[in-house]
Write a protein that binds this DNA or RNA. Structure first.
Length: 828
RNA sequence: GCUCUAGUGGUGGAAUCGGUAGACACGUUGGACUUAAAAUCCAAUCGGGUGAAUAACUCGGUGCCAGUUCAAGUCUGGCCUGGAGCACCA
């Protein structure tokens, strides 16, 4: 055995063996229980970054641990390979997006293999390949048939720089999630998925997801944004052309209805022209133009003073008979509720600000009886009792909500209503590098889905990427013109492609049956492997990918394609990889290239280090010294074996009645097995797992340095300790463990070994340190043997000379004995 | 503003049930080995105080203020600070 460990040479050699022996292939038929471990699949951007390394290492260790614990583990990988960067590369360097993507995948595949990840490469999926996107298109057609995919004209988010529309979820602070440029509003006809049909289920089923972090669940709940309230309708009394018009509003505060002093409609409100008097027309029109020109950022700014203009018309309040004016103001949002708001300045801070600016009246209808407010300086938004509200006076406002809405229901001017903030998912993209939306437009038959047997609708290759301002796909001469699947007449293809998040909303199901040419996947296989037992990825997908995937799962279940209704049972959101306290990024120039680490220290060091310093969910600060430390530790373990090779007997047996030193080591091994197993099982605390590797290593070295004579007993216990250490480390330092295993003469892989078990009686030290406290302060520590009775412990504590000295002349009030731990003597 | 999350040495972080605060490392300092260096090994390392002392002892200490308890990093109430998400959502 070599004196030093040479990662570069050994890792390469071992990789070749694993590949040859198919060590990590997953078979569908197995008697073992299944376990599905999954990392969020990467975008093939060119090279792995440290975030990838962290993500894949965490999942890999979980997969290997579960495999050693007797599970049939599915641990696949693939490529989220559609998307803009490939297209941008094509535009900038004249490269073909497919070629660019393929080259990146090839390089990153090499890197992933170098990391020693236990993937079943036979299940690799690549979303940009026709054999995959055929099924993305097929699923689109199923959703279309169910009415869950539809086209509508709407105000949508437009990113000029990316030349495409974006989903709501992809607009961050009014900016594009990808390129950070300001998003504009455009009115376009676009394809949507009806995710809002599932708003309630998506919200309710969050409760089922016990293995998800509270942060992710609340983020999703906030995004879905459920509000219970009422729709109340108000008749317009003086519409300019004498029409009978009604304005419905959504409110969560029907209890304040008697306090309405005006009503606001959004500038984009559909009937606004019918509600405007001729005298006000010009001003209203001007205001609407302005509102339209404003960017989301300007409009959403809470700093901005509220503005608006009166329409000149009025409504009547059916509860009071009072009339009140109509205004338009951009603090009312067209897309939420009905686009109209009843304004109660006394009890809503926004209405209060607006009323104050335009000198609109306010009317108090809720009072706190102990501390009444006239609402002159601020709106009163707390709970209270109704006043100035006719028959509802004296009622608690929480009760009044229901009673007042009920009155509207009884008199047909309102209803109970649950409102969600979630909007439908806009999936059209005016880009080339995505799955074409499989529909055609026929002059006679209108919108028609492509026939399933004609899938996939292939991306054309005769496209020109140099033309700016339109989707490259529209430059194809062959793509657009086609025939109608119904009448056979002339038709044109949809040139929009699907949001890449559609592709990634079902890839984890495809892994169950990745090579199926007849179906998107076999139902039984999907039901067998899913849901994913452990999903690992970045928090940045807390809403986007994770919400879309949940929607897909529910929709696919309703389509009868699967039997489960949540895709990911447990979710681990790993923290970021930082360098010098801030996120690694090219622009900051603080990146560390994984290749360099693999070259200089080997993949084992990278794996060990990235798990060692922080728990997985927390941010991790990369330090060169830390890498160095891990590399040293790997060599320390290697030397432990190589320097003491002569003492190792793989067919060891542990005799009874060990010497004290050997007994201590034996116990330390059992303590380590127990601790490491628990740490992995309990939230994957890999940082403490690695400290326990070090503790055990230290304990074994300790044994060697004291009275180690190389007797049969010494050798047997030492052998046991070393072999267990290597096994415990094998999910993390995968190459070194395998190499040592081979050096010890094994012909099979250590990665097919069973996880070690511990003996509960041995997983504790032979004696305990009894802590003796007086009034809760530590005063003495006594080494005692295990298993003494409470009285014996108490006796020993009271006999301690230090204790005697301290309690002399005082009265012992009480003595508390904690078995196996401490005695606390309370004195006065 | 609302929601979630965290706060422990010089640093990363440990600490099942409330029971020795600071495991394991990094860093630093000193030492051994060496002609020298690297590598390796050993020791010290929360702060204050008493002591000639690397002896012995003692007090304080887990963001702040209270409380519960024999005992609080851990439980309860109130605050402060950082991070994240949402945000004129009626």
């Amino acid at each position: 055995m070599e004196e030093r460990y040479f990662p570069q040479k050994n890792e390469k050699e071992i990789l070749e063996q694993w590949e040859k022996n198919n060590t990590f292939k997953t078979y569908n038929d197995s008697d073992k229980p299944k376990y599905y471990a999954l990392s969020m699949f990467p975008y093939p951007s060119g090279k792995l970054h440290m975030g990838h390394v962290r993500n894949y290492t965490i999942t890999d260790v979980i997969a290997r641990f579960k495999k050693m614990n007797g599970f049939n583990v599915l641990h696949p990988i693939g490529w989220d390979s559609f998307g803009l960067p490939a297209e941008n590369a094509a535009m900038q360097h004249g490269a073909n997006p497919a070629k660019w993507t393929d080259e990146n995948i090839a390089y990153m595949t090499k890197q992933l293999k170098m990391m020693g990840l236990s993937y079943d490469w036979d299940r690799e999926v690549t979303t940009c390949k026709p054999e995959y996107y055929k099924w993305t298109q097929w699923l689109f057609l199923q959703l279309y048939k169910k009415g869950l995919a539809y086209k509508k004209e709407a105000a949508v988010n437009w990113c000029e720089k990316c030349g495409t529309v974006l989903a709501n979820e992809q607009v961050i602070d009014g900016k594009c999630w990808r390129c950070d440029s300001v998003v504009e509003k455009k009115y376009l006809s676009q394809w949507f998925f009806k995710i809002t049909d599932y708003a309630e289920q998506l919200l309710k089923d969050l409760d089922k997801l016990e293995g998800w972090g509270e942060n992710v669940k609340t983020m999703q709940a906030n995004w879905i944004g459920k509000s219970e309230g009422a729709i109340l309708k108000f008749k317009v009394v003086d519409a300019p052309d004498g029409k009978d018009l009604e304005i419905p509003v959504f409110t969560t505060r029907p209890d304040t209805v008697h306090g309405i002093t005006y009503l606001v409609v959004a500038p984009e409100y559909k009937d606004i022209e019918l509600l405007t008097t001729p005298e006000n027309k010009e001003k209203v029109e001007e205001y609407r133009q302005n509102a339209r020109r404003m960017t989301e950022i300007e409009r959403l700014s809470t700093e901005r003073v509220k503005t608006g203009v009166p329409l000149g018309t009025h409504c009547i309040n059916p509860y009071t008979g009072e009339t009140f004016p109509l205004w338009t103001a951009d603090y009312a949002l067209a897309e939420y509720g009905t686009g109209a708001v009843m304004a109660v300045p006394a009890h809503d801070t926004r209405d209060f600000d607006f009323a104050k600016k335009y000198n609109l009246p306010l009317k108090v209808v809720i009072q706190n009886s102990e501390n009444p407010s006239d609402c002159k300086d601020a709106a009163y938004t707390e709970e209270g009792v109704l006043v100035n509200s006719n028959e509802f006076n004296g009622m608690k406002n929480t009760d009044a909500k229901k009673a007042i809405t009920q009155k509207a229901v009884d008199n047909s001017f309102g209803e109970f209503k649950t409102q969600y903030r979630l909007r439908d998912w806009l999936i059209s993209r005016q880009r080339y590098w995505g799955a074409p939306i499989p529909v055609v437009y026929c002059e006679k038959c209108g919108v028609q889905p492509v026939k399933e047997e004609d899938l996939p609708v292939l991306l054309p290759e005769d496209v020109d990427f140099s033309i700016v301002g339109k989707s490259p796909i529209t430059t194809s001469k062959t793509f657009k013109e086609t025939t109608c699947p119904v009448c056979g007449g002339k038709a044109v293809r949809e040139t929009d492609t699907m949001d890449t998040f559609v592709c990634s909303s079902w890839y984890y199901m495809r892994y169950a049956d990745a090579r199926n040419k007849e179906k998107c996947f076999d139902k039984d296989l999907a039901n067998k492997w899913l849901p994913v037992d452990q999903y690992v990825g970045g928090i940045e997908h807390a809403i986007l990918h994770l919400l879309y995937s949940r929607f897909f799962t529910k929709a696919l279940k309703d389509l009868g394609l699967i039997d489960f209704d949540e895709p990911f049972k447990n979710l681990l959101t790993q923290g970021m990889v930082l360098k010098d306290g801030s996120k690694m990024s090219k622009s900051k120039g603080n990146t560390v290239d994984p290749d360099e680490i693999f070259q200089n220290y080997g993949a084992d060091t990278a794996r060990l280090f990235i798990l060692s310093d922080s728990p997985p969910a927390r941010d991790f600060d990369w330090s060169d010294a830390g890498v160095e430390g891990c590399y040293k530790f790997i060599n320390r373990v290697w030397r432990l074996v190589s320097d003491n090779f002569k003492y190792i007997n793989v067919n060891y047996s542990i005799p009874e009645n060990l010497s004290k030193d050997n007994d201590t080591l034996l116990r330390n091994v059992h303590i380590a097995i127990k601790g490491i197993t628990n740490d992995i099982s309990n939230d994957f605390q890999f940082n403490t797992v690695i400290s326990k590797y070090r503790e055990l290593t230290n304990a074994i070295y300790d044994r060697l340095s004291k009275n180690f004579e190389g007797t049969e007993e010494d050798k047997n216990v030492f052998s046991f300790a070393v072999l267990m250490l290597i096994k415990l480390m094998s999910p993390v330092t995968v190459f070194m463990a395998e190499k040592i295993w081979q050096e010890l003469g094994y012909k099979t892989s250590i990665h097919d070994e069973k996880w070690p078990e511990w003996d509960e009686n041995l997983a504790k030290s032979a004696g305990i340190t009894l802590v003796v406290q007086i009034n809760g302060k530590v005063r003495d520590k006594i080494e005692v043997q295990n298993g003494l009775s409470q009285d014996e412990l108490k006796e020993m504590a009271l006999n301690s000379p230090k204790v005697k000295e301290q309690i002399a002349g005082k009265e012992v009030v009480k003595t508390i004995v904690v078995p196996q731990k401490l005695v606390n003597i309370v004195v006065k």
